[in-house]
Amino acid sequence: MSAASLKSGRWRRIRALIVKETLQVVRDPSSIVVAFVLPALLLFLFGFGITFDATRVKVGLVIEEPTPESAEFAISLSNTRYFDVRQAQSRLAFIDDLAAGKISGVIVLSGDFAERLERGDTAGVQVITDGSDPNTAGLVTGYVQGAWQSWQNQRGFAKTSSMPGQIDVQARFWFNPELESRRLLVPGSISLIMMMIGALLTALVVSREWERGTIEALLATPIGTLEFLIGKLVPNFMLGLCAMAVCVLAALFVFDIPLRGSLLILIGFTAVFMSVALSIGLLISTVAKTQFVASQMAMLVAFLPGLYFSGFLFEIASMPAPLRAFSVIVPAKYYVQGLQTIFLAGNIASVLVPCTLILVFMSTVLFALTARNTRQRLD
């Protein structure tokens, strides 16, 4: 038999497997749920449920000696979108509420507040926060400092009290000038969702064949290991890209996340990452013979490392050295970096090229391990 006929026969078998797998995906509602319903649900939960921005924080404002200046500053605080202000003349009125967690901080204007301002001295403003939640405590302190600086600028104190040689700091924030954490979290959420969905799709495919008893008929066909794997990968790869389309549309039109990079680069980068996620799922399917075990292993291998070691929620640089070393082998880490760059910064080759090469290497290794562990017999 000639090489051309062998090649033609191989492609016919691969095409038949792809058609068979596509029909099985279309007829199986669980695959549609995993590819379309699950990403939309998870993205809405992550996008609306998780935020690092604190708005309408409940604080107590203590004015020990009411003056026109303290009243102006109190109005300035109340007019911001960050604070829900309650006033009193003694900090004792808020101690119990602070201990009970009903308020996040207490702002105290000292009795000589107006006198210090007149002298050009440092104003007596004390901020007491609930340190049991360090993130909120830091936000309250930063918001008070920002409100104070804004109020100073409005009253002209910044100009009248400026000293020769004093530094005038003007902050500019690139890529996310509104400082909305959602613009950072939504691309990270997409990476986590795609990692979980990609691993789940292929992990459940082969285990479903074992559970339904159809694997015997499949293994009896004259197909090779490579043909078997390609036939399983291609339909789920297209299904994964459809899930990515759902996530991108939601990010652009629901969460108002800018896409500053190229859509084609985003599709190509996602395709490389999907090959990694699907290869992980196929590798799991070579071990798990039931859908329950396959789904649990996919969660353990794909979802949890992506959640903790991708940089999506937790800063990797602040982790101990062993955990930082472990994060190197987490594919979601590189996809998070790439997605955040494409969405917020643009087509930055110095970020995208290394991430893409690492993901290609991971995909090749995982596919080779899967081909080696795939057994075309029932024992």
Rank of each mutant, 00 (worst) to 15 (best):
S2W: 12
K7Q: 13
S8F: 13
R10P: 07
R10I: 07
R10M: 05
W11G: 01
I14V: 15
K20P: 09
K20Q: 14
E21V: 04
L23I: 15
S30Q: 11
I32T: 09
V34I: 15
L38H: 02
L43W: 07
F44C: 15
L45I: 15
G49A: 11
T51I: 02
F52P: 07
D53V: 12
T55I: 13
V57N: 02
K58I: 02
V59A: 10
T67H: 09
E72S: 08
N79G: 03
R81H: 03
D84Y: 15
V85T: 12
F94D: 00
K102D: 12
K102V: 02
K102P: 04
I103T: 04
V108G: 04
L109N: 07
D112Q: 10
E115V: 02
A123Y: 05
V125I: 15
V125C: 06
G131R: 10
G131Y: 11
T136L: 09
V140L: 00
G142N: 11
V144A: 03
G146F: 09
A147I: 09
Q149I: 15
Q149H: 09
S150F: 11
S150E: 12
Q152L: 15
R155F: 10
R155V: 03
M163C: 12
P164M: 01
P164V: 06
I167C: 06
V169W: 08
V169A: 13
V169T: 00
V169K: 02
Q170L: 13
A171G: 02
F173W: 14
W174A: 13
F175C: 02
E180M: 06
R183V: 08
L185A: 02
G188C: 10
S189P: 01
L192Y: 03
M196H: 04
V206D: 09
I215E: 08
E216D: 12
P222Y: 09
I223D: 07
T225K: 14
L226C: 04
F228C: 04
L233P: 05
C242F: 15
C247F: 01
F255I: 06
P258C: 08
I265D: 12
I265P: 03
G268W: 05
F269H: 02
T270N: 06
T270P: 04
V272C: 13
S275T: 01
V276I: 14
L283P: 06
A288D: 08
Q291N: 15
V293M: 10
S295N: 01
A298N: 08
M299P: 06
V301N: 07
A302C: 11
A302I: 03
G306P: 00
L307D: 03
G311T: 00
L323C: 05
F326I: 13
S327I: 06
A332N: 01
Y335F: 12
V336H: 03
V336N: 07
Q337S: 11
I348F: 09
V353L: 03
P354D: 02
L357I: 15
L359R: 00
V360E: 09
T364F: 09
L366V: 05
R372W: 11
R377C: 09
R377A: 05
R377N: 14
D379I: 02
